[in-house]
Design a protein around this nucleic acid. Sequence first.
DNA 1: CATCAGGAGGCTATTATGGCTTTAGATTCG
DNA 2: CGAATCTAAAGCCATAATAGCCTCCTGATG
Lengths: 134, 134
Amino acid sequence: MLITRASEYAILSLIVLSKADAPMDSETLSRELSIPKSFLAKILQALAKKTILKSFKGVNGGFVLAQDPKDISMLDVMSAVEGKAPAVFECAPSINDCPSDKATACSIWPFLNKLQLKIDSFLALLTLADILEE
Amino acid sequence: MLITRASEYAILSLIVLSKADAPMDSETLSRELSIPKSFLAKILQALAKKTILKSFKGVNGGFVLAQDPKDISMLDVMSAVEGKAPAVFECAPSINDCPSDKATACSIWPFLNKLQLKIDSFLALLTLADILEE
DNA sequence: CATCAGGAGGCTATTATGGCTTTAGATTCG
DNA sequence: CGAATCTAAAGCCATAATAGCCTCCTGATG
């Protein structure tokens, strides 16, 4: 999946936002979590675009969760933040498409696909609610 | 975990090596998988250092699996290749250590730790054998 | 209309990726 | 035994992608 720091920051933010009862602005979040403000802003915007967060402009604006934590999966978060579809193996784009004309690459393709599916389904089942529950 | 391309290449290599019956050198692997040779060489070296692979120098040298596929977990591979300990959340280094003096960061620490454990244990149980079996 | 906070884009710094060269251990052959 | 050859090991350097910084624009609020 090529998990980057953006995913890490996104999850951190979601945990904090899930506990807030009013919109929290990116500057406050940035300060509380010691995350660079400008980078965090872009991440929050990406989450808002995928309707994982809801944003409010103006005074007392900020971000709130747009969905119930049990409906927000780590796969959702990561694919929202990492731009492209979350693919561990970028050289293996689709199940019907052999990724290469090399015989070796072709023969390992089913195994890669299997691994990809395992990771994806794990991340799809792991929700924000799972992390929050005690 | 900040999964990078190195992990992807490592897993690709392990799948191919698991099907070879003689040492395979980094140049051949690089050619078959269309992976940059010099980068792949470093990855294979990292895997050899953690005794996931065994290396042979000289004529007919190369790399072979040093362990049974069922004993090679994705967590092993990723931590071998990503240099540092595989931590999704680098700001949260150890369970007894609050990662920050910020109250907010401190309060979300248990949740982060929980997520980290979930991901780690998933990756620790996912072995090369799981990927290879049909 | 003044102020606040998100949205969007460009720019810089840092890190990951990839290229290249040299060194060292192992094998083969004369 | 010694030279030649093969391949891992290890380093340094270039490029590409990510992480982080700054400024202006837009919509909302009072």
